[in-house]
């Protein structure tokens, strides 16, 4: 499970010297270094070695022993993504750095990285990372001359790592779960429409916090009348498993009965319950849900 690897990494990084070593490595001109360079003149090489190996053991440093020389350590993607900002004092208060001095260069860095990461990160995301990386570095740089270069490398490394992390966790389908109270009206309408509109890349499920025996016949009638015929479900209870299996969880009045699972995108649509309403009113609800489903689909498949 991801959390236990992460917990082990966090445990290893509790030691202040390791955070200091990571900060040195992240700003090293080569992006990697061996034990003696990290220990510095007169430093305790054995101790530094122990720290570096502990970080390597939990996948925060890669070891490279090419050319028969001493082992060189390089921060991994995990180290960059998870501990990059912490290693620069992200835990302490740091005021927003005055970037006016380097404004134009930072703009160019953002511009260049936006092109590099086009299709993966929006320009705003890139700009935020550049800005944040600059602030982190500026808060402890005595010599400001090299800040843009360091910012450029740090932001590039972090974005690269982030992109890989995202790629790695991509699954082939997007699972969407619609939840309402009875699982006989709103969630069925939404599921039916999304199933009709989306291709095989989207898997649609429904559930109810207090499911009833069958889908509301008046709802079925309106759906068929509107050409939405993919009604293939029966009301069923909401379980943790189905939430866990979903990427998107859309609730429509299920109250607080919906379990919260990390990493899922939660949406709450304030749509009226069609139960007991006239057909004309149900049509309005179907149209409203259709509108929301189409918007959701543009988010799922950009």
């Amino acid at each position: 499970m991801g959390e236990s690897t992460l917990a082990r990494q966090v445990e290893v990084m509790v030691d202040p010297q390791r955070l200091q070593l990571l900060a040195l490595l992240l700003t090293d001109p080569d992006g990697e270094a061996d034990t003696s360079r990290l220990a510095g003149p007169g430093g305790d090489m054995d101790l530094v070695q122990v720290h570096l190996e502990a970080m390597a053991a939990v996948g925060l440093l890669g070891r490279d022993s090419r050319r028969g020389g001493p082992v060189r350590y390089r921060p991994t993607h995990d180290a960059l993504v998870r501990f990059g900002s912490l290693a620069f004092g992200g835990a302490g208060p740091h005021e927003h750095a005055d970037r006016s001095e380097h404004g134009p260069i930072l703009e160019r860095i953002t511009e260049r990285l936006s092109v590099t990461f086009a299709g993966t990160f929006a320009r705003e995301t890139v700009a935020r990372y550049v800005e944040e990386s600059y602030s982190l570095l500026a808060s402890r740089a005595r010599v400001r001359q090299h800040l843009p270069a360091l910012t450029s490398r740090f932001a590039t490394d972090r974005l690269t790592a982030l992109a890989r992390t995202q790629d790695g966790s991509l699954h082939t389908t997007t699972d969407v779960l619609f939840v309402c109270v009875r699982n006989s009206g709103r969630s069925q309408i939404a599921a039916c429409i999304l199933r009709s509109l989306a291709g095989p890349g989207v898997r649609v499920r429904t559930a109810g916090s207090a499911p009833v025996a069958r889908i509301d016949p008046a709802v079925v009638k309106v759906l068929i009348e509107r050409g939405w015929e993919q009604i293939a479900e029966f009301p069923k209870p909401l379980t943790d498993d189905v939430v866990r299996a979903s990427d998107y969880v859309v609730t429509m009045g299920c109250g607080d009965a919906c379990p919260l699972v990390p990493g899922r995108r939660y949406l709450d649509w304030p749509v009226a319950d069609p139960t007991g309403l006239e057909e004309a009113e149900i049509r309005v609800i179907v149209d409203e849900i259709e509108h929301r489903v189409r918007l959701l689909l543009t988010e799922i498949i950009p």
Binding site: V10, E11, M13, V14, D15, P16, Q17, L19, Q20, A23, L24, T27, D28, P29, D30, L86, A87, F88, G89, G90, A91, G92, I105, R108, I109, L137, R140, A141, V143, Q145, H146, P148, A149, L150, S152
Partner: peptide
């Protein structure tokens, strides 16, 4: 940025900052 591809400085995290971050971790 091309001019300064290999900046000749490494930024250190102060002991005090490292300790406060360590405590949080």
């Amino acid at each position: 940025e091309a001019v300064v591809t290999a900046p000749a400085l490494r930024l250190a995290l102060s002991r005090q900052e490292a300790e406060s971050t360590g405590a949080l971790l």
